[in-house]
Every structure is written in C-alpha cells, then in structure tokens.
C-alpha cells in the first residue's frame, strides 16, 4: 500500500516544506515572543487609559478570532490598505500578531510573580533600570513562565499548517500538492503525522531541558 518510490520524486519538495515549516515556526515564535514582551512591558508601565484600552481591545480581538480569518484579513484585505505582502511575509507577520497577546499574558503573569523585594534590592544597590530588567526580572520571570512559553510554542507549531491556506509552501502545502497529483493519501498522511509527532516531541524535550536549567538552583538547595 505504501509506495516508497513516491518519495524519490517528491522527497526534495517535502524536505523543502519541512524546512519551511520549521523556519516559519522559529521566526514566528521569536517575533511573537518579542512583540508579546513589548506589549507586556507597555501594559505594566503605561497606565494611561487610552493605551490600556487599546491593548485590551487588541488582546480581545486577536484571541477572539480564528487565526485563519486573521490571515485572510492580512493577506487578502491588506492590499486595500496599501499593505501588499507576499504569502511568506504575510504568514510570518500573521503568526507574530496571532501569538503576541498569548505571549504577552504569559510574560505579564511572569513579571508580576517577580518578588518586589528583589527589584527594590537591585534598585537599592544602584542597578540601572536596564540591568534590573536583564539581570533580575527576566531570569526570575523565566523560572515561572517557561512551562507556559514552551506550551504555547508547541501550539504555534500546529498553527503553522494554516499558513498553507494562503499558499505558503510549508509541509502541508507540499503534501497537498503531492496528494493532488498522485492521490497518495496514505503516504502523505504518514509523512505529516510522523513529522509533527517528532517535531512536537523534540520541542517539548528541549523545553523540559530548559526548564531544568532555569530551575536548577531550586533543586540544588532543597
């Protein structure tokens, strides 16, 4: 039932698709985290109500609408606003926007969990604000936020397949091309299921290792 010769023909395209999926996931996750962190910082430090309302509205809108519809607005609706993007940049921008409020919430909770005493101590010792952030708040925040960050990064791996709907040539797109040309559903399924299983497993392993490293000092002393 499984026709391996298919992979000789479609192997290169599938591999390119795999690479593209991993690339989209990496870039999308990193940018979404960065934007999420900025959003969390703004929400913490700017208390003016218009900014707070705007942030609230942004978070509600992104979290209340499907990623697919957001992509359609961006990719098909964007040109009407003068935002003419190719599929790949639109997909990456979409992932960034989609992920940012979730990451912002995770960072917000994490930053709130940093004991105030530690920040005050750093300030008393004369740390400049940048150093307080870099050397005290971020390391302490990561301890509590890491599991949630890894968890949402894994959710994002699964969202990358939706980019195929706006013709980003990632694994799903390449597999669908293969299916359409050869009707090899079993083989295509095999590739997709195997890939995602390995991909997700790999990320959760890396996540567990990172967690162990971030909480290492806790284990040592207990």
């Amino acid at each position: 039932m499984i026709d391996l010769s298919l992979f000789q023909q479609y192997g290169p395209a599938l591999l390119r698709g795999l690479g593209m999926t991993i690339f989209c996931w990496l870039v999308g996750t990193v940018f979404a985290m960065a934007l999420g962190f900025v959003l969390a910082l703004v929400q913490r430090s700017v208390t003016a109500w218009p900014v707070q309302w705007l942030l609230r509205g942004y978070v509600e809108f992104i979290r209340g609408t499907p990623f697919l519809v957001q992509l359609f607005v961006l990719y098909y609706g964007g040109p009407m606003l003068g935002l003419r993007l190719d599929a790949l940049p639109a997909g990456l921008l979409g992932l960034t926007i989609y992920g940012s409020p979730y990451f912002a919430e995770i960072f917000r909770a994490g930053l709130n969990a940093v004991p105030v005493g530690q920040i005050e101590a750093a300030r008393a010792m004369g740390f400049p604000p940048g150093a307080i952030m870099r050397r005290v708040m971020i390391p302490v925040m990561l301890v509590s936020a890491l599991p949630a960050l890894v968890n949402f990064s894994i959710i994002l791996t699964k969202e990358t397949v939706i980019l195929s709907m706006i013709t980003v040539p990632e694994i799903m797109f390449e597999t669908q091309t293969m299916m359409a040309e050869t009707f090899a559903f079993a083989e295509a399924t095999l590739v997709l299921a195997l890939f995602f299983w390995v991909f997700v497993e790999a990320i959760s392993r890396i996540g567990r290792r990172l967690e162990r490293r971030a909480t290492h000092y806790l284990l040592d002393r207990s």
Partner: peptide, 19 residues
Amino acid sequence: YRPLEIYLAAAFLYLAINL
C-alpha cells in the same frame, strides 16, 4: 472584490460569538 471588509466582518462575527 471586497476582502478587507468581508473578512473583518467575519472576524467581528466570531468575536461577538466568543464574547
């Protein structure tokens, strides 16, 4: 040929349902 308006309307419809 009005993707922006229609997809935004769809998005707000989803938002309304979820709220």
